[in-house]
């Protein structure tokens, strides 16, 4: 399959591979996809005291487009508030990487991964607030 230079760059030099401690309070973890479907993404965000996403990490099992999509979004979410990060659309990812039509689902998965990580972070924050009361 013919891929764009940007996509190949993200595949060959993936940004922010790795893991945070998923039990940490300032970390939100999203795990989406399914092995049977050929792609699983784990995306983690670390949120600072100022409410900005200070770091992000990913691990992905999937095709080159899936790896590139998740690598790209870890770059995009950094420095954003979680509300801003939540507005990232799969179409932006697909456009930036020039994903071929059969690979659009990879960008959808990356968007899902951000949303899942944010939801996890929010759930932890709510729990913490509840416990404090």
């Amino acid at each position: 399959m013919a891929y764009s230079e940007k996509l190949i760059d993200h595949y060959e030099n993936p940004r922010n591979i790795g893991s945070f401690d998923k039990a940490a309070e300032d970390v939100g973890t999203g795990l989406v996809g399914a092995p049977a479907c050929g792609d699983v993404m784990k995306l983690q965000i670390k949120v600072g005291a100022d409410g900005l996403i200070e770091d992000a990490k990913f691990k992905t099992f999937g095709c080159g487009s899936a790896i590139a999509s998740s690598s790209l979004v870890t770059e995009w979410v950094k420095g954003k508030t979680i509300d801003e990060a939540e507005t990232i659309k799969n179409t932006d990812i697909a456009k930036h990487l020039a994903l071929p039509p059969v690979k659009i689902h990879c960008s959808v998965l990356a968007e899902d991964a951000i949303k899942a990580a944010i939801a996890d972070y929010r759930a932890k924050a709510t729990k913490k607030a509840d416990a404090a009361e």
Binding site: S19, G33, A34, P35, C37, V40, K42, F58, K59, F61
Partner: peptide, 22 residues
């Protein structure tokens, strides 16, 4: 960079996880 490999190394059975089909 595979989350499945990471889980396997941690001793998690990936079949025990309820994956969402997509």
């Amino acid at each position: 960079m595979s989350p499945l490999w990471e889980m396997a190394q941690e001793g998690i059975d990936i079949k025990s996880i309820e994956w969402a089909a997509h």
